[in-house]
Design a binder for these strands. Sequence first.
DNA 1: GCGGTTTGTTGTACGGATGAACTATTGCCG
DNA 2: CGGCAATAGTTCATCCGTACAACAAACCGC
Lengths: 411, 411
Amino acid sequence: MTPTPTTTPRTTGVPPGAGSSASRQHTLRERNLRLVARAIYEAAPPPSGTTPPSRADVAAATGLTRATVSTLVDHLVAARLVAELAPTSSQRAGRPAVPLVPARRTVVGLGLEVNVDYLGVRALDLAGDVVADAVERGAFHDSDPAGVLGRLGALAADVVTRLEAEGMRVAGARLALPGLVDARTGELEVAPNLGWSSLDPVGLLGLGALPVHVANEAKLAALAELAGEVPPSFLYVSGDVGIGAGIVVDRSLFLAERGWNGEVGHVVVDPAGPRCSCGARGCLEQYAGKEAVLRAAGLPLDAPLGALVAAIEADDDGARDALHRAGRALGSALADFVNLTGVSTVVLGGVYTELEPWLRDAVLAVLRERVLAAPFVELDVRAARAGQHAALSGGAREVLREVVADPVAWG
Amino acid sequence: MTPTPTTTPRTTGVPPGAGSSASRQHTLRERNLRLVARAIYEAAPPPSGTTPPSRADVAAATGLTRATVSTLVDHLVAARLVAELAPTSSQRAGRPAVPLVPARRTVVGLGLEVNVDYLGVRALDLAGDVVADAVERGAFHDSDPAGVLGRLGALAADVVTRLEAEGMRVAGARLALPGLVDARTGELEVAPNLGWSSLDPVGLLGLGALPVHVANEAKLAALAELAGEVPPSFLYVSGDVGIGAGIVVDRSLFLAERGWNGEVGHVVVDPAGPRCSCGARGCLEQYAGKEAVLRAAGLPLDAPLGALVAAIEADDDGARDALHRAGRALGSALADFVNLTGVSTVVLGGVYTELEPWLRDAVLAVLRERVLAAPFVELDVRAARAGQHAALSGGAREVLREVVADPVAWG
DNA sequence: GCGGTTTGTTGTACGGATGAACTATTGCCG
DNA sequence: CGGCAATAGTTCATCCGTACAACAAACCGC
């Protein structure tokens, strides 16, 4: 009866993206390559006392045969993702093992960042070494996105050409921005402190073919903590003018929907409190934001953080008290955070890192009072350990994590 | 030099559980079996108008060859996980397809629950049909765990023997409890409304070899929503005396660390508010808990929910106002929840389901004010659709999800 | 009833992991 | 100093699961 006898698109009943994709033979190889790469990489950094693993060690750890591991490792070595050290004759009998370590200065990841008072580029190699670092101070409050991102792009391009001249391959880049970034599209919705909104930062960088992903600054900074010893899951809270957070679960970022989580700065501490820029009343930001703390301590809003530390160390009771009250408010909001996410470790980043000695007790005390599971878990509050401009390191690290997760793409 | 020449345990440098395990040939088959099973199962339920997929449809959807899909489907049919319908001669040319559907009454999952006023067992088959349902009312406030769980175990054992007599296999069970359950060990730390603490519920059930996992009631109830049409990620908030929640991300439960998340009942709404049983002040429970709402509406604390609904429908301004205020408080706590998790859909469960018509506007209004990403996402607040005793269905469903995820174990 | 069409099956080829040898290189001990 | 035990890494035949292509089966329309 239908006049058009064309092939009618049938409703098959199977939804299109139902689950992951089909596994073929080469999927197997990819997965095992990843397994071997991870075994080598995760063995490397913190317990530096131990010898790097050999092919046989990797075989034992992964459950693969020595034969299989051998061919896989050969691939990784050929791809310059893994390097062999000189066979160190151990004190044991038998043929000496060939230690396998992450390759140095072969493949690098790039971390980019624009924040209120600086922009920068950092490159890490697979061993975690900083092979390039370029930070420019500036005042980017209410700045021009095209100009600033163009400048950052030029800086990054310089770094890339220099590294490539030295024979390294740049695997990709992560751009950290202090705002709401759509984890799916990579577009920036709004960055209040920069005065930016609704733009595509990757295009403005002008970095050509280099794959660049964009993310929120606090979230990339959270990933930088993974370079050291941390529990597999933690909340990274970054204090600045605003207060952002990254949720790390099993060593990877929690990004439901579009990744707009961790907005701890606008958790209500007191509905009768002062009005916040977001329109609500009594947001945490009004108690524990950088400006709120400086004001409470009787310091000018543009005072450097060192001034606050100096005041405390000079036994300024006002300053100490300001931090104590900020810590209680922070604890209150973090109690909600912990109650809602079930993650029991809090890492204090941003300006909180330096202030941690005077914040920690108050935060922890409130957490102990208010977290329901407190009797059954070990609550932990600690300072971040990733150093200056953590988002740069975290971003670069994340690029390399992808390389290790899919070594085939880099063979 | 060491006096004992035994093999010294070497420090290999590779951490033991580094990543997943090795992929062998049969891993490939397992993964593809899962893929095929999912394609068939996910195609089945909601768009019932469409024809079930054929082998060729599954091949097209998964990217596998028709040949491969054929052998895999044959396995699933032999394992009685999938059934073939009669080849329906469609109106198209060509050999008629054999529609593939989830098998009925072959493998079933069991949902168990003990709550304050009832205990029950429910069995679902792979098609989602209820094949057994046994609920007993009771008053289990401050009850004896061994007695109550023993009774539930006996009830479950009856169901199991009856179903097995009919030729079905019981794949496992999930026990829902209104308290803090350790997602790793399955132990119950505390269930205030039952007066239980520090016990191993699985042992007290006495169900022998049947694999039973334990989980929080709200979390299993959340999973029941997946039977209908829901977004892949949502917050399920279950109102009762206490207020619990389940966080569903990409159609599976978010369970960081020990799964102690979603404690939205103790988010602070007002630090100057009334004291809560948890020790803090102004917890959401004091504003939007069942008893708080009844009290505010001028009803006795043990009044049935219907009384509140009746009062509202009789234009009782006090009752309507009580719900409006509860909705505002709920909205405030949920705004924190949404800001912290980034999940923008809220499903109202428990007593909130029935009250949703009078809660929704207030909740949504506060969310629109307070969620930072509100301008960029579609916030949604809706009533649960899973029906009575959702945790029973959610638990049973979860068992079956595991069966489908690893069909090899049931071949 | 015959070509066209779609479904499902059969046989061959190929890629990748395995396990059992085998080689390589050391320490230990007589 | 030479044989032996021990450990690391490699080689090769085999197995397993998927792809590809050809084929059989069952329908449509004309």
